[in-house]
Design a protein around this nucleic acid. Structure first.
Lengths: 132, 132
DNA sequence: TTATGTGCAAAGCGTTTGCACTTTA
DNA sequence: TAAAGTGCAAACGCTTTGCACATAA
Protein backbone atom coordinates (compact mmCIF):
# COMPACT_ATOMS: atom_id res chain seq x y z
CA UNK A 1 0.00 0.00 0.00
CA UNK A 2 1.28 3.45 -0.94
CA UNK A 3 0.98 6.41 1.40
CA UNK A 4 -0.02 9.85 0.22
CA UNK A 5 2.46 12.14 1.84
CA UNK A 6 2.94 15.87 1.66
CA UNK A 7 6.28 15.44 -0.13
CA UNK A 8 4.85 13.09 -2.72
CA UNK A 9 2.00 15.46 -3.46
CA UNK A 10 4.32 18.45 -3.72
CA UNK A 11 6.68 16.65 -6.08
CA UNK A 12 3.81 15.63 -8.32
CA UNK A 13 2.51 19.19 -8.28
CA UNK A 14 5.92 20.51 -9.30
CA UNK A 15 6.01 18.13 -12.25
CA UNK A 16 2.45 19.03 -13.21
CA UNK A 17 3.47 22.66 -12.98
CA UNK A 18 5.75 22.08 -15.94
CA UNK A 19 2.85 20.83 -18.03
CA UNK A 20 3.75 18.66 -20.97
CA UNK A 21 7.42 19.47 -20.92
CA UNK A 22 10.13 17.48 -19.27
CA UNK A 23 11.82 18.48 -16.03
CA UNK A 24 15.30 17.63 -14.85
CA UNK A 25 16.07 16.60 -11.30
CA UNK A 26 18.19 19.73 -11.08
CA UNK A 27 15.18 21.88 -11.94
CA UNK A 28 13.02 20.09 -9.41
CA UNK A 29 15.66 20.65 -6.74
CA UNK A 30 15.77 24.33 -7.54
CA UNK A 31 11.96 24.51 -7.54
CA UNK A 32 12.03 22.89 -4.12
CA UNK A 33 14.48 25.37 -2.71
CA UNK A 34 12.72 28.37 -4.29
CA UNK A 35 9.41 27.33 -2.78
CA UNK A 36 11.16 26.39 0.43
CA UNK A 37 9.60 22.96 0.48
CA UNK A 38 11.08 20.51 2.92
CA UNK A 39 12.01 17.70 0.56
CA UNK A 40 15.39 16.03 0.66
CA UNK A 41 17.30 14.80 -2.37
CA UNK A 42 16.79 11.22 -1.24
CA UNK A 43 13.05 11.65 -1.04
CA UNK A 44 12.95 13.34 -4.41
CA UNK A 45 14.83 10.50 -6.08
CA UNK A 46 12.84 7.85 -4.28
CA UNK A 47 9.55 9.49 -5.15
CA UNK A 48 10.54 9.93 -8.79
CA UNK A 49 11.38 6.24 -8.90
CA UNK A 50 8.09 5.16 -7.45
CA UNK A 51 6.07 7.53 -9.63
CA UNK A 52 7.91 6.08 -12.61
CA UNK A 53 7.23 2.51 -11.53
CA UNK A 54 3.57 3.32 -11.09
CA UNK A 55 3.45 4.72 -14.60
CA UNK A 56 2.46 8.19 -13.44
CA UNK A 57 5.54 9.87 -14.82
CA UNK A 58 8.18 8.68 -17.23
CA UNK A 59 11.90 9.05 -17.26
CA UNK A 60 14.17 9.69 -20.18
CA UNK A 61 17.59 10.99 -21.03
CA UNK A 62 18.49 13.70 -23.47
CA UNK A 63 21.68 13.11 -25.40
CA UNK A 64 24.41 15.41 -24.26
CA UNK A 65 22.55 16.36 -21.12
CA UNK A 66 23.63 14.78 -17.89
CA UNK A 67 21.01 13.41 -15.56
CA UNK A 68 17.50 12.13 -16.05
CA UNK A 69 14.43 14.08 -17.08
CA UNK A 70 10.86 13.32 -16.16
CA UNK A 71 7.46 14.17 -17.42
CA UNK A 72 3.87 13.23 -16.77
CA UNK A 73 2.56 10.23 -18.63
CA UNK A 74 -0.39 10.99 -20.81
CA UNK A 75 -3.52 9.01 -21.34
CA UNK A 76 -2.68 7.17 -24.50
CA UNK A 77 -5.59 6.08 -26.56
CA UNK A 78 -3.64 6.19 -29.78
CA UNK A 79 -0.07 6.22 -30.96
CA UNK A 80 1.93 9.36 -31.21
CA UNK A 81 5.54 10.43 -31.31
CA UNK A 82 7.32 13.29 -29.65
CA UNK A 83 9.42 15.91 -31.32
CA UNK A 84 12.13 17.57 -29.27
CA UNK A 85 13.97 20.62 -30.50
CA UNK A 86 17.70 20.15 -30.17
CA UNK A 87 18.15 23.88 -29.92
CA UNK A 88 15.59 25.06 -27.37
CA UNK A 89 14.51 21.75 -25.80
CA UNK A 90 10.83 22.33 -26.49
CA UNK A 91 8.70 19.23 -26.87
CA UNK A 92 5.94 18.88 -29.43
CA UNK A 93 3.44 16.13 -30.09
CA UNK A 94 3.25 14.42 -33.42
CA UNK A 95 -0.08 12.81 -33.70
CA UNK A 96 -1.19 12.18 -37.24
CA UNK A 97 -2.00 9.56 -39.83
CA UNK A 98 1.57 9.32 -41.04
CA UNK A 99 2.65 8.04 -37.64
CA UNK A 100 0.00 5.34 -37.75
CA UNK A 101 1.07 4.43 -41.25
CA UNK A 102 4.71 4.08 -40.26
CA UNK A 103 3.86 2.08 -37.15
CA UNK A 104 1.66 -0.26 -39.13
CA UNK A 105 4.31 -0.68 -41.77
CA UNK A 106 7.02 -1.48 -39.23
CA UNK A 107 4.83 -3.99 -37.47
CA UNK A 108 3.69 -5.76 -40.62
CA UNK A 109 6.73 -5.58 -42.85
CA UNK A 110 9.54 -5.56 -40.31
CA UNK A 111 7.86 -7.63 -37.63
CA UNK A 112 8.92 -5.14 -34.99
CA UNK A 113 6.49 -3.97 -32.35
CA UNK A 114 7.17 -0.31 -31.66
CA UNK A 115 6.54 1.17 -28.26
CA UNK A 116 5.39 4.56 -29.51
CA UNK A 117 5.46 5.97 -26.05
CA UNK A 118 9.23 6.11 -26.12
CA UNK A 119 9.71 7.47 -29.59
CA UNK A 120 11.42 10.82 -29.73
CA UNK A 121 12.41 12.54 -32.93
CA UNK A 122 15.07 15.16 -32.42
CA UNK A 123 15.51 18.08 -34.74
CA UNK A 124 15.03 21.80 -35.02
CA UNK A 125 11.68 23.46 -34.48
CA UNK A 126 10.18 26.15 -36.66
CA UNK A 127 11.10 29.06 -34.39
CA UNK A 128 14.69 27.98 -33.99
CA UNK A 129 15.01 27.45 -37.72
CA UNK A 130 13.96 31.01 -38.41
CA UNK A 131 16.26 32.40 -35.74
CA UNK A 132 19.27 31.36 -37.82
CA UNK B 1 46.82 18.31 -35.11
CA UNK B 2 45.71 14.90 -33.90
CA UNK B 3 48.19 12.11 -33.29
CA UNK B 4 47.52 8.57 -34.36
CA UNK B 5 48.46 6.52 -31.36
CA UNK B 6 48.33 2.81 -30.70
CA UNK B 7 45.61 3.28 -28.08
CA UNK B 8 43.47 5.38 -30.38
CA UNK B 9 43.75 2.82 -33.15
CA UNK B 10 42.97 -0.06 -30.83
CA UNK B 11 39.91 1.67 -29.43
CA UNK B 12 38.60 2.37 -32.90
CA UNK B 13 39.23 -1.25 -33.88
CA UNK B 14 37.29 -2.46 -30.87
CA UNK B 15 34.33 -0.31 -31.83
CA UNK B 16 34.56 -1.45 -35.44
CA UNK B 17 34.65 -5.01 -34.16
CA UNK B 18 31.12 -4.52 -32.91
CA UNK B 19 29.97 -3.57 -36.38
CA UNK B 20 26.75 -1.63 -36.55
CA UNK B 21 25.72 -2.21 -33.01
CA UNK B 22 26.36 0.02 -30.08
CA UNK B 23 28.95 -0.65 -27.41
CA UNK B 24 28.95 0.46 -23.82
CA UNK B 25 32.03 1.78 -22.09
CA UNK B 26 31.76 -1.22 -19.79
CA UNK B 27 31.99 -3.58 -22.77
CA UNK B 28 34.97 -1.71 -24.17
CA UNK B 29 36.72 -1.94 -20.82
CA UNK B 30 36.13 -5.67 -20.70
CA UNK B 31 37.32 -6.03 -24.31
CA UNK B 32 40.45 -4.16 -23.32
CA UNK B 33 41.16 -6.40 -20.39
CA UNK B 34 40.36 -9.58 -22.35
CA UNK B 35 42.77 -8.61 -25.11
CA UNK B 36 45.22 -7.36 -22.52
CA UNK B 37 45.57 -4.00 -24.22
CA UNK B 38 47.29 -1.31 -22.24
CA UNK B 39 44.62 1.36 -22.26
CA UNK B 40 43.56 3.18 -19.13
CA UNK B 41 40.04 4.28 -18.35
CA UNK B 42 41.07 7.89 -18.71
CA UNK B 43 42.45 7.33 -22.19
CA UNK B 44 39.36 5.39 -23.19
CA UNK B 45 37.04 8.17 -22.11
CA UNK B 46 39.22 10.87 -23.64
CA UNK B 47 39.49 9.00 -26.91
CA UNK B 48 35.77 8.34 -27.06
CA UNK B 49 35.20 12.04 -26.54
CA UNK B 50 37.53 13.06 -29.31
CA UNK B 51 36.22 10.43 -31.74
CA UNK B 52 32.74 11.74 -30.99
CA UNK B 53 33.78 15.35 -31.56
CA UNK B 54 35.36 14.39 -34.84
CA UNK B 55 32.15 12.72 -35.93
CA UNK B 56 33.74 9.30 -36.27
CA UNK B 57 31.58 7.69 -33.64
CA UNK B 58 28.43 8.83 -31.94
CA UNK B 59 27.29 8.66 -28.39
CA UNK B 60 23.85 7.94 -27.10
CA UNK B 61 22.05 6.79 -24.00
CA UNK B 62 19.60 3.97 -23.69
CA UNK B 63 16.76 4.57 -21.31
CA UNK B 64 17.10 2.57 -18.16
CA UNK B 65 20.70 1.70 -18.90
CA UNK B 66 23.33 3.62 -17.01
CA UNK B 67 26.31 4.99 -18.89
CA UNK B 68 26.87 6.00 -22.49
CA UNK B 69 26.94 3.79 -25.56
CA UNK B 70 28.86 4.42 -28.73
CA UNK B 71 28.77 3.29 -32.29
CA UNK B 72 30.42 4.11 -35.57
CA UNK B 73 28.87 6.87 -37.59
CA UNK B 74 27.71 5.72 -40.95
CA UNK B 75 27.97 7.45 -44.25
CA UNK B 76 24.52 8.88 -44.53
CA UNK B 77 23.34 9.49 -48.03
CA UNK B 78 19.72 9.07 -47.09
CA UNK B 79 17.51 9.16 -44.06
CA UNK B 80 16.92 6.17 -41.93
CA UNK B 81 15.80 5.37 -38.42
CA UNK B 82 17.05 2.82 -35.95
CA UNK B 83 15.01 0.20 -34.19
CA UNK B 84 16.27 -1.04 -30.85
CA UNK B 85 14.77 -4.07 -29.17
CA UNK B 86 13.92 -3.31 -25.56
CA UNK B 87 14.30 -6.94 -24.69
CA UNK B 88 17.60 -8.05 -26.27
CA UNK B 89 19.15 -4.68 -27.13
CA UNK B 90 19.68 -5.56 -30.78
CA UNK B 91 19.74 -2.65 -33.22
CA UNK B 92 18.13 -2.78 -36.64
CA UNK B 93 18.06 -0.29 -39.49
CA UNK B 94 14.81 1.02 -40.82
CA UNK B 95 15.42 2.36 -44.23
CA UNK B 96 12.37 2.51 -46.38
CA UNK B 97 9.95 4.77 -48.19
CA UNK B 98 7.69 5.13 -45.19
CA UNK B 99 10.49 6.85 -43.28
CA UNK B 100 11.00 9.30 -46.11
CA UNK B 101 7.29 9.93 -46.22
CA UNK B 102 7.07 10.65 -42.52
CA UNK B 103 10.14 12.89 -42.60
CA UNK B 104 8.75 14.83 -45.54
CA UNK B 105 5.41 15.18 -43.84
CA UNK B 106 6.92 16.45 -40.59
CA UNK B 107 9.08 18.94 -42.39
CA UNK B 108 6.32 20.32 -44.58
CA UNK B 109 3.28 20.14 -42.33
CA UNK B 110 4.82 20.60 -38.93
CA UNK B 111 7.76 22.78 -39.95
CA UNK B 112 10.12 20.66 -37.90
CA UNK B 113 13.45 19.58 -39.32
CA UNK B 114 14.17 16.07 -38.06
CA UNK B 115 17.69 14.88 -37.51
CA UNK B 116 17.10 11.30 -38.59
CA UNK B 117 20.47 10.25 -37.37
CA UNK B 118 19.28 10.40 -33.80
CA UNK B 119 15.93 8.75 -34.24
CA UNK B 120 15.54 5.55 -32.32
CA UNK B 121 12.31 3.58 -32.15
CA UNK B 122 12.19 1.22 -29.21
CA UNK B 123 10.08 -1.87 -29.19
CA UNK B 124 10.25 -5.65 -29.37
CA UNK B 125 11.91 -7.48 -32.23
CA UNK B 126 10.51 -10.47 -34.03
CA UNK B 127 12.61 -13.04 -32.20
CA UNK B 128 11.81 -11.68 -28.78
CA UNK B 129 8.12 -11.51 -29.63
CA UNK B 130 8.06 -15.19 -30.48
CA UNK B 131 10.00 -16.10 -27.35
CA UNK B 132 7.08 -15.07 -25.19
C1' DT C 1 61.77 19.49 -29.49
C1' DT C 2 57.31 20.70 -28.73
C1' DA C 3 52.59 19.80 -29.13
C1' DT C 4 49.72 16.05 -28.09
C1' DG C 5 48.53 11.71 -25.76
C1' DT C 6 48.83 8.59 -21.67
C1' DG C 7 48.47 6.68 -16.90
C1' DC C 8 47.50 7.19 -12.27
C1' DA C 9 45.01 8.65 -8.60
C1' DA C 10 41.96 11.95 -6.87
C1' DA C 11 37.99 14.62 -7.53
C1' DG C 12 33.21 15.49 -9.48
C1' DC C 13 28.62 14.73 -9.91
C1' DG C 14 24.21 12.44 -10.29
C1' DT C 15 22.11 8.83 -7.84
C1' DT C 16 21.39 5.22 -4.27
C1' DT C 17 21.39 3.30 0.31
C1' DG C 18 21.71 2.23 5.56
C1' DC C 19 19.81 3.63 9.52
C1' DA C 20 17.22 5.97 12.96
C1' DC C 21 13.21 8.72 13.11
C1' DT C 22 8.55 10.26 11.55
C1' DT C 23 4.19 9.81 9.44
C1' DT C 24 0.18 7.50 7.43
C1' DA C 25 -3.76 4.61 7.62
C1' DT D 1 0.89 0.19 16.01
C1' DA D 2 2.50 -1.72 11.84
C1' DA D 3 3.76 -0.56 7.28
C1' DA D 4 5.58 2.97 4.55
C1' DG D 5 8.01 7.37 3.94
C1' DT D 6 11.69 10.78 5.29
C1' DG D 7 16.26 13.01 6.24
C1' DC D 8 20.97 12.75 6.79
C1' DA D 9 25.29 11.43 5.53
C1' DA D 10 28.00 8.09 3.56
C1' DA D 11 28.63 5.19 -0.31
C1' DC D 12 28.36 4.20 -5.32
C1' DG D 13 29.32 4.18 -10.20
C1' DC D 14 30.30 6.56 -14.25
C1' DT D 15 33.07 10.19 -15.90
C1' DT D 16 36.48 13.97 -15.74
C1' DT D 17 40.72 16.19 -14.44
C1' DG D 18 45.59 17.61 -12.66
C1' DC D 19 49.95 16.42 -13.12
C1' DA D 20 54.14 14.15 -14.36
C1' DC D 21 55.77 11.18 -17.91
C1' DA D 22 55.81 9.24 -22.73
C1' DT D 23 55.26 9.54 -27.64
C1' DA D 24 54.27 11.23 -32.39
C1' DA D 25 55.54 14.24 -36.01
Amino acid sequence: MRYSTKQRQEILDLIKGHGESHVSVETLLSDISKKQLNISRATLYRTLDSLTEEGIIKRFFLDGKLGACYQLCEEEDHNHFHLICESCGKMLHLDCDEVETLMGHIEKEHNFKVNSDRVVLYGICEECQSKK
